[in-house]
Nucleic acid binder design. Structure first.
Lengths: 363, 363
DNA sequence: ACTTGCAGTCTCGAAGAGAGAGTGCTAGCA
DNA sequence: TGCTAGCACTCTCTCTTCGAGACTGCAAGT
């Protein structure tokens, strides 16, 4: 692509920002007025024609304003946008919330997703921390009733998982403890394959077999995706419409359109979340990510996945390479506030990294 | 309230069913035609006037059909409706799904809510199994890193909870095990108050104190609410509208209106879920329930909670009285399919009861 | 190289009219 | 007395029309 003139850049940037803000096709005149561009609307129109040629923007219909295309957003994200960092207050608030649940691991994912969703008024996704291949470090078995017990397993990567055991014969805590004492040294440091090997090489008791199977099952478990959505209050405000305030006419109109747009976007979002939940998209995401280490932006499915039309993803990995970690990010309309979204996702990934470092790896 | 004549009942029942089905104000003529009533529309109109007098139904505006009021739904649920049991296939499917996660306790709540939401195309709520006051049965501590460990606690009611521990001094598994062996007999069978008492009466080591505090925190934890929502695909189908098929005109019109209604209902639902999540409604629910043992229906907030206007709840307790258990149910528009909803909620409560009996109490 | 001015195009909202849906009432019939 | 048929009336919904206004693209001017 031939590089854009600085004036074209300036105009494109203003246009994208305006559209993200207002969800209304942007007119040349508006750009000049609101962004105090040092040339006339006709000139802007000329440049807009050029940008349209380059497929960076679009006209919904002749004689309407312009709207960025996916490519336009891409250019914006890569060259024009600037990240808007979180305010210190926000950072403090987040830190504080995580401080409160620092000892409840299962809350981390929920909280992270919830924070992202709320800060960005959109939906967030996150996979819980996992490492690729797990190995047993230590486990304990707690008796619950005569015939059931609870297995807790610490992996070498530091993650803890648990599972209910249904025993075949009535077994008390003492016996479970002794089994645990017997098996722990045997399984320590091993992965799925080795444990399977051990099971073949000797004849375990029924209870031991139940335990071993549970361990294998835990090690093989896939990580699932967690969602959080900020439920925006999109309900119409008939009060506002009824009170015939026609003063702010232009603004009101824009407001109205914005409401409708956000409504549509909201529905679209739910569709996509649904599809992601059906696991149709997740594997693609995972395979797309490794390319770089920072925050990745996928705009409108980037012409590759129709399912993601009109929807953008801002994703990041967290955790160290090869160790325990996962994916986290935000799903929003293509017209999301990329600057802020990227900043938030980056920050949350960093927070997760620190939390993980605190609790898991101490090297 | 004076009892309704059987003819009024017949008409009310038909009206409610029709409205639940179509979300369209019901006309006298429609009732006669679709439900083959043995009298004319004029007679029906007369009776409708009576029902309106009794505040069981409503006219959105003069010369529109009738719509049930909350009171009307109430009457329907209590006297006219019949429960529509789950098909054997559905039952089998559900059993199978639970069979697959029978050893993953944390999945039960998720699965139950998800099943209810999906079967009823609405939102489901559920609190995880808890008993009123918890007592320690047994716990174990697993070392994760030098400075962090994992506490797993089995309560006398059979529930298992866990928490991450941040240790002040570097401690290995062996030492944690010996502390656990020392504290277990001391704490066994005790509740929050007694443990606090013990802590006052002697001077524990820093690590012991961390552990005791964690146990107390676990015992004091409130049970949170879990949500699941069936994301209905409400997106308009412009294709259908574009293809100018005007043949099924009446049906098409009803269809259109239904779409809009469902959209509104959907938004309303999200509002209410939001409020419930903010914990504003939950305590009320809990206090409302104990009255009877079966399935409870709360319609449109039953004039008591404005927050719940237009929304109905079908709720049931599960678990045995005083033992481990919780609340589960469905939130939907007032025009939900009560017959089916009640059957589903009842069934799921029963499934949970059986699961709990299997794993927890064996008496 | 820009800008001004202007004709052309398209959308959106208001207004009005007609169709249709549904009611309540009254008169008549068993 | 209980039911029905007929009918005038009301209210909503939809379709159409029409004018205003929002933008554009182009051509002529600075």
């Amino acid at each position: 692509m031939t590089p854009l003139s600085s004036r074209k850049q300036q105009i494109l940037r203003a246009l994208v920002e305006e559209y993200i803000h207002n969800a209304t096709p942007v007119a040349s005149e508006t750009l000049v007025r609101k962004y105090e561009l040092p040339f006339s609307s006709a000139t802007v129109r000329h440049e807009l024609a050029g940008l349209e040629e380059a497929d960076l923007i679009n006209q919904p219909h002749t004689s309407a304003g312009r709207v960025p295309t996916d490519l336009g957003y891409r250019y914006f994200v890569e060259h024009l946008m600037q990240e808007s960092a979180l305010s210190l207050d926000e950072q403090r608030l987040i830190r504080h919330m995580f401080y409160q649940v620092q000892d409840q691991l299962d809350q981390w994912v929920r909280l992270t997703a919830s924070v992202m969703a709320r800060l960005l008024h959109s939906a967030a996704v996150m996979t819980p921390p996992r490492s690729a291949e797990g190995r047993v470090k230590h486990f304990e078995i707690l008796s619950v009733t005569d015939l059931s017990a609870h297995l807790v397993l610490v992996l070498t990567d530091g993650t803890v998982r648990e599972q209910r055991l249904l025993l075949e014969t009535s077994t008390l805590q003492d016996e479970l403890s002794s089994i645990s004492a017997r098996l722990n040294p045997r399984f320590s440091g091993l992965g799925v394959d080795e444990i399977n090997g051990i099971l073949l090489s000797y004849d375990p008791s029924p209870t031991e077999r139940v335990i071993a199977n549970a361990i294998i099952r835990i090690l093989e478990q896939q990580s699932d995706v967690f969602f959080s959505e900020d439920i925006v209050n999109i309900l119409d405000h008939p009060a506002a419409a009824a009170s015939g305030l026609r003063l702010a006419n232009e603004d009101e109109r824009a407001e109205r359109i914005r409401k409708v747009m956000e409504d549509l976007e909201h529905k679209r979002l739910q569709q996509v979340m649904d599809e992601i939940e059906q696991k149709r998209i997740l594997p693609v995401l995972a395979s797309h990510l490794p390319s770089t280490d920072g925050v990745q932006v996928i705009i409108g499915g980037e012409n590759r996945w129709d399912e993601m039309k009109d929807v953008s993803l801002v994703l990041a990995r967290y955790g160290q390479k090869g160790k325990v970690g996962g994916l986290l990010g935000v799903i929003g309309p293509t017209r999301m506030q990329y600057g802020r979204a990227i900043a938030v996702v980056r920050y949350m990934a960093q927070v997760m990294n620190e939390l993980l470092a605190d609790v898991y790896g101490c090297e």
